[in-house]
Design a protein around this nucleic acid. Structure first.
Lengths: 162, 162
DNA sequence: ATACATGCAAACTGTTTGCAGAACA
DNA sequence: TGTTCTGCAAACAGTTTGCATGTAT
C-alpha cells in the first residue's frame, strides 16, 4: 500500500471533487484507519481514532468508513462473526482471506485459478459473474502450538449421515 | 435429499436420544423447513410454519433451527446481506454457492479443485485448514434478460487506482 | 451565509434470553 | 410430577438516522 499521507491526500481530493467537506474528525479517522493495518473492526478503528480525538463518535466512524467504501479506497468484509471489518483497498489486486479460528488473525492470499473456476461454473450454470468471495478457515502455527484447536465454526457436513 | 418424513423421523429420534422433547411446534417448523427447499431465511421459515400453526413464535423458530444445526441436519449460511439462511444438510457432499445479484436465487456447485487450493495455501502459510466458504456473485439468465444488471455488491477492487 | 457534518439519542434489524404459564415424558 | 418448552417482551449487538448545533467553504 502507498504512504498514509498520500492516501489521505487522495481521499481529500476525491472528497472535494464530490462536494464532501473535509473535517478534523474525518482526518483523524482516516489516519487511524490507513496508518495501522488491515481488517480492523469499526470498534477498533473507533478506539484508535479516539486516541487522537476523544470526542469522535461511532456514528461518524461509520459514516466515514462508508464514504471511503463509496470512494473506493476501503473494502468492507463480512466474516462469519457478526460485525464487519474494513481494509484499505487502493491498488491491491483481488485477493481472498484465510482466517485463524484460534486467534482471529486474517491472512491474505491470491490464486489465479479461482478465476478459472468462476468461468467454468458460470458457463455450466449460465450466469454472468461479477465477483467472488473465498474464505478459508483453519489454525495458524502459533495457535496449534498452544493447543487451540476446537471444533470448526459452521460445520457444513452432517455429523451423522441419515 | 431424503424424504421429508424420513428426515423428521431421524430428527425426532436424535432429539429423544439427547433428552430433547418433541413438540407440535417443532414438528411444524421442521416440516416447513425440510419440505420446501433450500436456503430459506428464518423469516420465510417462520412464515411457512405459521401456515400450519398460526401461533408459532419467531423465538421458537430460532431455537429449533439452532437445534437442527446442533444435531447436524441443517447448515447455517451467512451471505452478505445481514440475515442468515438455513439449508437442510443430510448426506450432501460439501458444496459452494452461486448467488444471483438480481433475484437472490442461490445455486449450488461443487469443484474438487478447491480442496487443492486449500491445501496449497495451507502449506504456504503454515495453517491447518478446517473448512472453506466460496461464494460467487453474478446474474442469472432470467435477470440478464430483464436487464437487471446493476453495480455488483461489495466491490473489492478500487474504483480508481491511486 | 449556507450548506454540510457532528454528537447524541433513538430507531432499526436480526437474534438471543428471562420469565411465567403450558405441555411433554 | 418434574423438567423442558413456549410465547411474549425485553435485552442485545451492530448499524443507521433524525435533529439541533457546530463548522468548513
Amino acid at each position: 500500500m502507498r504512504e498514509p499521507a498520500e492516501v489521505i491526500q487522495f481521499v481529500r481530493a476525491e472528497a472535494r471533487r464530490r462536494g464532501v467537506r473535509w473535517t478534523s474528525q474525518r482526518q483523524t479517522i482516516v489516519e487511524a484507519f490507513v496508518a495501522s493495518g488491515d481488517h480492523l473492526t469499526v470498534e477498533e478503528i473507533h478506539r484508535r481514532a479516539r486516541l487522537s480525538d476523544g470526542t469522535v463518535s461511532a456514528a461518524t466512524v461509520y459514516r466515514t468508513l462508508n464514504l471511503l467504501v463509496e470512494i473506493g479506497v476501503a473494502a468492507k468484509r463480512q466474516f462469519g462473526d457478526g460485525s464487519s471489518t474494513f481494509e484499505p483497498n487502493l491498488d491491491k489486486p483481488h485477493h481472498d482471506h484465510l482466517v485463524c479460528l484460534g486467534c482471529g488473525t486474517i491472512r491474505e492470499f491470491q490464486r489465479d485459478i479461482i478465476e478459472a473456476i468462476q468461468e467454468d461454473v458460470a458457463r455450466e450454470l449460465d450466469f454472468v459473474l461479477a465477483s467472488h468471495r473465498l474464505e478459508l478457515y483453519g489454525w495458524c502455527a502459533a495457535c496449534r502450538a498452544k493447543g487451540l484447536m476446537q471444533v470448526p465454526v459452521q460445520p457444513t457436513v452432517a455429523v451423522r449421515p441419515l
